[in-house]
Computed example of a mutant assay.
Amino acid sequence: MTPDDRHLHTPESDRYEIGQVVLRYCRGVDRLDLDLVRSAYHPDGIDHHTGFDGTVEDYLSWVSGALRQFSGTMHLVGNQLIELNGARAVCETYGQAVHWGEPADDPRRNFTSGFRYVDHMTFAGGRWAITERWAVREWTRSDAGRFVAKEGAGPQGRRDDQDCLYAVRRRILG
């Protein structure tokens, strides 16, 4: 272990921090906040996705284009098992990702997929982050023609820094 890897965290705090990495990644993807997605990885991180295999910087370029074909996405995470080994960890996260876009009857623009993130995480540079990720697609279901309009006026999600989340964060967190 290097001096950088010697930290005073408990297994519980390490698990919490690792879980936060996954949640930041999901928020970043859904809000198209690529800096937030980048923050989930170490600079030399590797990603393996359906249709992509490469470095984190190449992944960001690829996923940015892939996500812009949708009007929105929503990643929901569920079961998560984190196994620690000093400054290294294996994190398996189950989830579902909903995708929607135009035309509404296009199954390639409107689907839900079940996935698992299998992450090799490491603590380096004072933080836990993804060293290598395997985004395992378990299943995909077409949602074409199933989305309906909102039932009334109200907050509308956005995929930029004008989303209400960012306004609330600026007001509360500074």
Rank of each mutant, 00 (worst) to 15 (best):
E102C: 05
E92F: 01
E83L: 06
D105K: 07
R88Q: 08
G51I: 09
E57D: 12
F111R: 01
R68P: 08
N85T: 11
T50P: 06
H75M: 05
F111Q: 00
E92K: 07
S113W: 07
E102I: 02
T55C: 05
Q80F: 08
A97M: 09
C91I: 02
G54P: 03
N79F: 14
A89T: 04
C91A: 10
L60H: 12
A97Q: 07
F52S: 10
L67N: 12
V90E: 13
T55E: 08
G95R: 15
D53A: 14
L81S: 00
P107Q: 11
G51T: 00
P107K: 09
T50I: 11
V77A: 09
M74S: 11
G86T: 02
G114H: 10
G101C: 01
D44C: 02
Y94S: 14
I46R: 15
G95I: 12
V90I: 04
A104S: 14
H42W: 03
R109G: 01
W100M: 02
G101Y: 13
Y59P: 06
G51E: 13
W62S: 07
S113E: 00
I82V: 15
E57R: 07
D47H: 12
D58Q: 02
V98P: 08
R108F: 05
G95N: 10
V77L: 06
T93Q: 03
A97F: 06
W62K: 09
S64E: 04
T93L: 02
Q80Y: 08
E102V: 00
G114S: 06
G45I: 00
W62I: 03
Y59L: 10
G114Y: 05
G86R: 04
Q69E: 11
W62L: 06
E92S: 03
D44V: 00
V63G: 01
G78Y: 15
H99F: 12
D47S: 14
N85A: 15
W62C: 12
L67W: 10
M74V: 14
G65Q: 00
F70A: 00
H49M: 08
T73H: 14
G54H: 13
W62N: 03
S61D: 14
M74F: 15
E83P: 01
L67E: 08
H42T: 02
I46T: 13
V77S: 04
T55S: 15
L84A: 06
D58A: 03
G65T: 00
D53K: 05
L76G: 05
S113Y: 11
E83I: 02
L67S: 11
H75W: 10
D53F: 12
D106K: 01
F52L: 04
L60E: 13
E83T: 11
R108W: 10
Y94E: 10
D106H: 01
D47N: 06
T112P: 03
Q96S: 09
I46L: 14
G86L: 05
T73N: 11
C91W: 05
T73F: 09
I46Y: 14
F70R: 01
T50G: 12
G114R: 12
S61K: 15
I82G: 07
R88E: 09
I82C: 10
F111Y: 05
Q80W: 11
I82W: 15
L81K: 07
L67V: 01
F111V: 00
V90R: 13
D53M: 08
T112S: 06
T112W: 04
R88M: 11
W100R: 07
W100Q: 13
D106W: 02
G95A: 13
P43M: 04
V63S: 15
G86I: 00
V63N: 11
G51C: 14
Q96F: 06
Q96C: 04
I82H: 15
G65P: 00
